[in-house]
């Protein structure tokens, strides 16, 4: 019987959310191809993280002191050994920064190419094709392996819905790879968070931005509440910074900063070109404006036409409630 092997990533011993999504993808693929699902994760077998991988019928704890810190060389060598032991049909990874770093090397060592950042698959008469996005999502491509197993795939975050973790009923097997410290050529140091700079909007994942619609300096607090609730940075269009209501460094636009957050929530911003130029790279734009013809709605993904003084407090409350 063939195997679908899923490598999970752990943070503080627990599988990450995207790893559980990859496990769910693995389960779907296993059932579509009549394979058994195996899961592997770095850690010690008695770690609590392994007990939540109930979907898998075989679980491996990759346990070696040289795996304590991530290195491409160490992870590649360890995975190669497990793969050559299990001879899986498919090997799935969550598409994370770590996987992007070592999985292509792993695939090359196996003479394969990783099908990366996959959003779905179709299994049809024994032939499995994987969907991945090209041209920043403007085109979908169907990929398939043209070589014997294993086929390596990394799964995009959010593409599959993670099942609720179920407790394991199988014994967790410790797999100790043979690793040689001298074969690990990179020396990573402790990860760190960038020191709190003045304001760096350009790397902020979430931004709430305010424009002329706010009318008065005193009302900025309303927007700040929303930003705090979301955990977002506060930004503004030029008139707000010109008026001195927010410092210049928070200005987004052609004469200010260029930003590309995952969420750009524009409140009371009509959308002059100077502003659009600074935020057009945002992944998702939400606009709240009372003027339904405001240009900002042309580029927004979601819009609320209404009085910001009513909508924003309601939204802040709803966000707080959702976050618990």
């Amino acid at each position: 019987m063939s195997t679908v092997l899923v490598f999970l990533e752990a943070k503080s011993g627990e599988p990450t959310r995207i790893s559980l999504e990859a496990l769910a993808a693995g389960a779907k693929l296993a059932s579509a191809t009549g394979a058994v699902l195996a899961a592997a994760m770095v850690g010690t077998a008695n770690g609590t993280g392994f007990s939540a991988l109930g979907a898998a019928s075989a679980i491996y704890a990759l346990d070696h002191p040289l795996l304590a810190h991530y290195t491409a060389d160490g992870y590649t060598a360890a995975c190669v050994q497990l793969i050559s032991r299990l001879q899986p049909e498919f090997v799935l990874f969550p598409h994370t920064y770590e996987v992007r770093d070592f999985a292509p090397r792993l695939a090359t060592r196996l003479g394969r190419v990783l099908i990366s950042d996959v959003t779905g698959f179709q299994a049809d008469a024994g032939r499995v094709t994987f969907t991945r996005q090209l041209f920043q999502g403007k085109l979908n491509g169907q990929y398939r392996a043209a070589s014997p197993a294993p086929c390596l795939i990394s799964v995009q975050a959010g593409a599959f819905r993670a099942d609720a973790p179920t407790a394991t009923s199988v014994a967790i097997e410790t797999f100790v790879p043979e690793l040689d410290a001298s074969a690990i050529r990179t020396a990573p140091s402790e990860p760190f968070r960038a020191a709190a700079q003045t304001v760096d909007l350009s790397s902020a994942p979430l931004i709430v931005s305010v424009g002329r619609g706010i009318k008065d300096e005193a009302n900025i607090a309303l927007i700040k509440d929303l930003a705090d609730a979301l955990g977002a940075e506060l930004a503004a269009s030029r008139p707000i910074c010109d008026a001195g209501w927010l410092p210049m460094e928070r200005q987004v636009g052609s004469s200010g900063q260029t930003v590309a957050p995952r969420l750009y929530l524009a409140v009371g911003i009509s959308g002059a070109i100077q502003h659009l130029v600074g935020m057009k790279g945002s992944q998702c734009v939400v606009a709240i404006n009372k003027d339904e013809n405001a240009p900002i709605f042309e580029i927004a993904d979601y819009g609320i036409v209404g009085d910001l003084f009513e909508v924003v407090p309601a939204l802040t409350a709803a966000v707080r409630k959702a976050k618990g």
Binding site: A272, I273, L276, P295
Partner: peptide, 10 residues
């Protein structure tokens, strides 16, 4: 550029 891209130019 303005007529093609700028909301006001449009």
């Amino acid at each position: 550029c303005m007529g093609g891209y700028d909301p006001k130019g449009r």
